[in-house]
Design a protein around this nucleic acid. Structure first.
Lengths: 210, 210
DNA sequence: TTATCATAAATTGGCGCCAATTTTGGATAT
DNA sequence: ATATCCAAAATTGGCGCCAATTTATGATAA
């Protein structure tokens, strides 16, 4: 069984190029509306042409970029109507499982949520907008996971990406961020109290003003 | 070096190969679990290798097929847990906009729904399972469209594809199909009466036993 | 100076080849 | 007869070339 495979040092590409581009879109490095030239991406991410093309096709499927035949791909610009429609969807889903979340949450779960909320709070002062954005994402992901429906969690994660093209610029004011922080703690309190109805209201309010 | 470009009669491919494969998966022609060899698809749909690969990658993104590196792609086998989780999602979304549907529906809308429901009824006796399946889809699509949230309609359409891999075999008994028919009419009556609460109940029941 | 058009440069996107890996089939030894 | 192993065939998947189309450039005429 001595299949001597040289196994060269050639596997630093554990992550897909798609994720790299996705990340740069979400952090605003690749601005909404800008054209994504294949040559640029090829050099920027040190990958081959087919890889770039596959990534762009995947992102187009997820509607994070738009494809114009013979013209190329450009980052989707956030659409007002679309954004509010997605918000409505998120409210239906995330608020819809509020009672499940309140029912399933154990003591350590609540602790974990408090930690994540605290991390968000700390980053308000000392973190970059990107770190803040990701901390917020982590909190909501953890909270939603308690509903027990993994398909739903994945779906929300997916449609969330679909609109927050330039998430960094989304939270304009400091006041708004601190309001978000307060709401996080309200949600946690409702979870700790096992109060599904209150949690549902808190989630709905939180999503509406995001 | 004379590259003779015959320009054969080769342009009936206005539709993407992805949709063709998708259709064949949904109608059960390509059975769940079966391996999709690239050569076979290439010949079956009269297209090139790269086209097949792109289509398979897209379907893998939508999780209609699964990709095993160096082994190929095979049709996803329906998973019990996953199916019930998707049902729950559909209930949250479709029942969640019941009041919107009831509020927005005009007289001609109701008429159109009655026509679609009737077409479904007619196909119970004279149609193929596939036709029945598509008539059912058309009815639900039309009904849901009344909510006014196009993002939500698209999303439901998408996640619906995700689980009903072998939709034909899904409605086992005649009794169940006729039950579905009755529920369709119940929903329409609720819409016509502008009764959102009753509609919500009817939709939830209908999805649960699908 | 400004508009129009032709030519050149750049970009996209289709297609096929070939290496890497896996599967199949059969021969050999126990 | 059965298991093991090796070789051949089949399949996947990465990569690059080149044609088609679009965009940029510059020259010419009004």
């Amino acid at each position: 069984m001595n299949k001597v495979k040289p196994r060269e040092a050639n596997n630093p590409t554990a992550v897909d190029v798609t994720d790299l581009i996705l990340h740069d879109i979400q952090t605003g490095v690749l601005a909404p509306g800008s054209w994504l030239k294949q040559i640029d991406l090829e050099q920027r991410y040190q990958c081959t042409r087919p890889e770039v093309r596959r990534a762009l096709d995947r992102l187009a499927q997820r509607r994070l970029v738009e494809h114009v035949p013979n013209r190329g791909y450009h980052v989707y610009e956030p659409d007002g109507r679309q954004a509010s429609e997605v918000s409505e969807i998120r409210i239906l889903l995330e608020a819809g499982v509020a009672d499940k979340i309140a029912a399933n949450a154990s003591e350590p779960d609540v602790e974990a949520l408090r930690d994540l909320a605290s991390r968000f709070d700390a980053l308000i002062l000392e973190g970059t907008p990107i770190e803040l954005y990701e901390a917020n994402l982590a909190f909501h992901h953890r909270l939603l996971s308690l509903c027990g429906n993994t398909e739903l969690v994945n779906l929300v994660t997916e449609i969330r990406q679909r609109t927050s093209s330039a998430p960094v610029s989304q939270w304009k004011t400091r006041a708004r961020i601190e309001q978000s922080s307060r709401e996080h703690h309200q949600m946690i309190d409702a979870v700790a109290a096992g109060d599904g109805a209150t949690l549902k209201e808190a989630i709905a309010r939180h999503i509406r003003q995001d």
